[in-house]
Amino acid sequence: MLPLKYRRLPRLFRSGPVNFIVVIGALVILGFYLLSTDTTSKANSPYKYRKVDNDPFDFAQAPGDHITHYDLNKLTSTSDSLKHKERVLILTPMAKFHQGYWDNLLKLSYPRDLLELGFILPRTKEGDEALRSLEKVVKRVQNPKSKTPKFSGVTILRQDTDAVESQAEKDRHAFKAQKKRRSQMATARNSLLFTTLGPFTSWVLWLDADVVESPTSLIEDLTAHNKAILAANCWQRFYDDEKKENSIRPYDYNNWVESDEGLRIASQLDDDEIIVEGYADMATFRPLMAHFYDANGDPNVEMQLDGVGGTCLLVKSEVHRDGAMFPNFPFYHLIETEGFSKMAKRLGYEVFGLPNYLVYHYNE
């Protein structure tokens, strides 16, 4: 190798003074750019940032950028969700499509641009029929040419695991079918939750596809309580043949307070056994929220619960982010929604219900 002082310059530097000056100028500009650009600073970033108000992140990048910053510390879930423009994710496992469910959903007064919908349907014949009906009504609302308000987003999933074989009410609620059925439901709920929960979500409203009637102010009413987990009382309208009149009756028995008998039964079960509430086969004598309904009572009255159902259940998104999900296995002898409430309580959250606040289940 030649001594350093005898090394030849690269050809570019030997091809004339003009090229030499061009190269030196380019290097100076590049050096100035690198020194003046702080890649960790939003203000000095080569990307254009725009400030976005009322969203849980500091800045969102201009189109074409591949980095997005979210600040979940700014994500709120408060008693005045509408004022703070808090986004609500409505999640519905759907085996059958009921037009009453969709009509009721469209009547909700919460702004649709703050609502996102998520559905999961089984790969069954009934699931295929429900999918066709669901897609039809969703496309009608979300059509860009439609003048009606649109939801901020809609996600439809097809279940990639086993589903409940029969959706007939007598089969769904048979005591012997509960462990398998609820395990499958828990898996479907978790798939739906983990796929759709985003950095903008403040609240998650679990709403069964069989809920066909609720107050139009459902979301505002529930979020006003500012509870981590809050269940509405699900009843059912029916025609009373004896009284010859329309009447109502309790439907969801999964909202309950633990009892001494329930604890005693649990202490005698094997690890893989579960307690199923609302069946004479396993009488726990737990106080059920469904039985605390007072037609003349204050709909805002709260009662503390240990177990919840999923017919109409509002959850702060932080609860799910902290790890509370729907166990598809016996968790302290509980499973699915009741297992979820147990898991949430183990994480330090309190669970409440509204005994006098009714939503109504479809009557088959």
Rank of each mutant, 00 (worst) to 15 (best):
T195Q: 07
L192S: 07
E273Q: 15
N226C: 05
A177H: 14
E245P: 01
P199G: 03
M185S: 04
V257Y: 11
M185A: 10
K227D: 00
S247A: 14
N246H: 13
W235R: 08
A174L: 02
F194S: 09
A290Q: 10
F285H: 10
S247Q: 13
Y239W: 15
S267C: 04
R264W: 14
D241S: 07
Y239P: 02
F238I: 04
A188R: 04
L222P: 03
R181G: 08
T195G: 03
D270H: 14
I248S: 12
S259T: 00
R181H: 02
A209W: 08
D270R: 15
G262V: 12
K244P: 03
D241R: 07
I229W: 01
F285P: 00
E169P: 09
F200D: 04
K179P: 02
F238P: 00
H225S: 08
A280Q: 15
M282H: 01
D272F: 12
S217K: 09
E277T: 15
I275H: 11
Y279P: 06
L263W: 10
K180Y: 07
L218V: 01
Y251M: 14
D272Y: 05
N233R: 05
Y251D: 08
I274Y: 07
A231T: 05
D208V: 01
L263G: 13
R237Y: 08
W235Q: 01
R189T: 01
R237K: 11
V257S: 12
D210R: 14
N254M: 13
K170L: 02
D260H: 06
D272K: 08
W235Y: 13
L205C: 01
D252M: 11
E242V: 13
A232Q: 09
N246S: 15
T196W: 00
D210K: 11
S191P: 04
W203V: 04
W256A: 13
L197A: 06
Q236V: 04
N233K: 05
Q178K: 13
R264V: 06
E273D: 14
P215L: 04
L205Q: 06
A174W: 09
G262I: 06
W256G: 02
G278H: 04
D272R: 08
L269H: 05
D281I: 02
K170C: 02
S202H: 12
S267E: 13
N254R: 15
I219F: 08
Q178C: 11
D240M: 14
E245M: 07
E273H: 10
I248P: 11
E261D: 13
H173W: 02
L230C: 09
A290I: 09
D270Q: 15
D171Y: 09
L207G: 02
R264L: 10
F238R: 11
R172T: 00
H173C: 08
R181Q: 06
K227S: 00
T216W: 04
V211T: 03
S217C: 08
E220S: 07
L207W: 03
L288I: 14
E277K: 10
V276W: 11
D272V: 13
A224P: 01
T196K: 00
Y253A: 08
T195R: 06
V204G: 01
T196M: 05
W203N: 03
E273K: 14
D240I: 10
I274D: 11
D210T: 14
E169G: 05
D260E: 15
T201I: 03
A228E: 08
R172E: 00
A290M: 15
V211P: 02
D260C: 01
R237C: 02
